[in-house]
């Protein structure tokens, strides 16, 4: 619904028409790759190998899903994934948010220092081997902790949140400070509520990131004890990649024969991606409506 103070002109209506038309086309284009995976996953495996599937399954079947659901330990993986997303996102959001907050407090002398300290890490890293050795040294191998602790503070999220906090009226925070409120209280009760939209956006980023990440899972969880849902998909996709690397023709043939069929791969993609897609609609309510901060502007 349009805010009442905006006039409805003819050119506005023409624009609306084109805008909606554009959005409908956009929806089609954006939905297509996903739709394609969906119909491939609903098509019979052997038939899929013939290619040429565009809009509808040729030989409809649910076997690919049945196969996936019966073959692997998806339930446990899903539970771990959810746990990872919840723990990872809340801790990261809280920590990166408070970090962003202290770097926007204008009279804080460590502000630039901390920002710089974090920005540098966006560009420089020691590479895989030192980080792996660190994880081993901290005894984080095969633990759940390895999922959220190394991602606790994020320089990128810090910058995004603070760019949002930039120009927020300071009057409220200052008056609270004079009343003797602690910084953490100011952050939680005054600043954070005004930043809900950006927190929602970061939550989507972080949740999707946690859900989708797989490299740390296979590298730091060699026992497979904490395998997430995404890993099941990745393993299948990695198998495909691995075949390409084989030198020995005999092994290659063997591997190619055993390769997971395209349809099962698509079914796995659907099973693994569908749950996380709903995070966005879930957080969307914080994007709409906007907030009125005029009240504190004096």
């Amino acid at each position: 619904m349009r805010a009442p103070y905006i006039k409805n002109t003819i050119s506005g209506r023409i624009f609306d028409f084109f805008n909606v038309t554009f959005m409908v086309i956009l929806m089609f284009i954006m939905l297509y790759p996903f739709w394609n995976q969906l119909i491939v996953s609903l098509n019979e495996g052997i038939d899929t190998a013939r290619g040429g599937l565009y809009f509808w399954p040729r030989k409809f079947t649910l076997d690919n899903y049945k196969y996936m659901l019966s073959e692997s330990n998806l339930g446990r993986g899903a539970a771990i994934s959810v746990l990872r997303v919840v723990v990872g996102t809340t801790t990261c959001l809280f920590c990166s948010g408070i970090l962003a907050y202290i770097t926007t407090v204008r009279w804080f002398s460590g502000r630039r220092f901390i920002r710089l300290l974090y920005i540098i890490t966006m560009y420089f890293s020691g590479g895989m081997i030192p980080f792996y050795l660190l994880i081993v040294k901290l005894r984080l191998m095969d633990t759940f902790t390895v999922y959220w602790l190394p991602g606790l503070f994020s320089a990128y999220y810090m910058l995004l949140i603070s760019s949002y906090m930039y120009n927020l009226p300071e009057a409220l925070a200052e008056s609270a400070r004079i009343d003797g409120a602690s910084e953490i209280r100011i952050y939680l009760q005054i600043v954070a509520p005004m930043c809900l939209p950006v927190f929602a956006a970061i939550a989507v980023f972080s949740a999707v990131g946690h859900w989708n990440s797989w490299f740390d899972v296979i590298l730091y969880n060699p026992s497979g004890k904490w395998d997430t849902l995404q890993v099941y998909l990745r393993k299948i996709l990695l198998d495909v990649e691995q075949v390409g690397k084989l030198v020995d023709e005999q092994k290659k043939m063997e591997a190619m024969r055993k390769l997971t069929p395209v349809s099962v791969r698509a079914a796995t993609t659907m099973i693994v991606t569908l749950p996380i897609i709903f995070t966005y609609p879930f957080f969307q309510k914080y994007f709409i409506g906007g907030i009125t901060i005029g009240a504190v502007k004096e």
Binding site: S163, V198, V204, Y286, I291, G294
Partner: peptide, 12 residues
């Protein structure tokens, strides 16, 4: 997404 969230911040 990030721009959508930034737009939501603008004072009505």
């Amino acid at each position: 997404i990030i721009y959508v969230s930034a737009i939501a911040r603008i004072d009505q």
